[in-house]
């Protein structure tokens, strides 16, 4: 069943584990448990977020929005870190699964970054009185979203997926170097134009009764992310096989097969 792709086959366990054909085999057994785990985590997290935790004495019930906002923001950065690691895998080891991982992660990163902005805007309205504040954190998240969308556009622009993976990997590395610079410049720009009138998250320490639901929801979102990433990777491996089979079919139909 599994069609062998041409990879440099070192006999290490990791390489064998990450071989596209074998990947489809072992990852199948993880999907259902992971789905179950993330469902349970969401049930616990949502319970803690609404019933198991008190309203904040300053922000009131709006603090409950933090339990979706912070996990989304965390995933927006975690996903870039994942893409960065995969990009290195693509460039250094030229591993096909690193290519697949990069491609599967980009839309998820865009989704969670967009969610972080959406929930951030909704949280900002009652607490700051405005949906959008040009503050450093929000602006850099917006730029991160643009970078994700650019990466998706770059993926879609290529026909040759092998070349696309390596080009996107180069761009992902460039982006990783630039994101801190962008963050710094945006912070500088913000302090220049609006001297200290903004609500800061890092001011008071977070109370434990808020931290518990926060951690539970972050875990739930992370599990969901891993699940979606895994399923998308499996689909992507299959899509590549579909593509090579389609090419073979086209060749056979023309009778030009050797």
């Amino acid at each position: 069943m599994s069609e062998v792709k041409q990879t440099h086959s070192e006999p290490g366990w990791f390489t064998r584990l990450a071989h596209p054909g074998l990947f489809l085999g072992w990852s199948r057994h993880i999907v259902i448990p992971l789905a179950g785990l993330s469902t349970i985590a969401f049930a616990i997290g949502l319970y803690l977020a609404f019933w198991g935790s008190p309203a904040d004495y300053q922000m009131g019930d709006t603090v409950r929005m933090m339990y979706v906002h912070v996990p989304a923001a965390w995933l927006s950065q975690f996903c870039y870190a994942l893409m960065f690691a995969s990009a290195i895998g693509t460039l250094v080891w030229r591993h096909p699964m690193a290519d697949v991982s990069q491609k599967a992660a980009a839309p998820l990163g865009a989704l969670f970054t967009a969610l972080a902005l959406f929930t951030g805007a909704l949280w900002g309205r009652p607490t700051w009185g405005t949906y959008w504040e040009w503050d450093g954190r929000m602006t850099s998240t917006l730029v991160l979203l643009l970078i994700y969308l650019g990466i998706i556009a770059l993926w879609r622009a290529f026909d040759d997926q092998l070349k696309a993976a390596r080009i996107v990997a180069v761009f992902t590395l460039i982006g990783a170097v630039n994101i801190p610079i962008i963050k710094f410049s945006v912070d500088w720009w913000h302090t220049l134009h609006q001297p200290a009138s903004v609500f800061r998250l890092d001011g008071p320490t977070i109370a434990p009764e808020i931290l518990t639901p926060l951690l539970a929801m972050t875990l739930a979102f992370s599990l969901l992310f891993m699940l979606l990433h895994l399923v998308r990777m499996r689909t992507e491996v299959r899509k590549r096989r579909v593509r090579s089979l389609e090419l073979a079919q086209a060749r056979a139909a023309k009778g030009a097969r050797p």
Binding site: G150, A153, L154, V170, I181, I182, W189
Partner: peptide, 30 residues
């Protein structure tokens, strides 16, 4: 360099690079 191999790379390139040029814009105008 990233889009050189693309036949229709004309529009992708600005989309990719605009977010990265933000610091230049900020400090330049600043």
């Amino acid at each position: 360099s990233v889009t050189v191999g693309l036949k229709r790379g004309g529009l992708v390139a600005p989309v990719l690079i605009l977010p990265l040029t933000l610091p230049v814009l900020i400090f330049g105008a600043g």
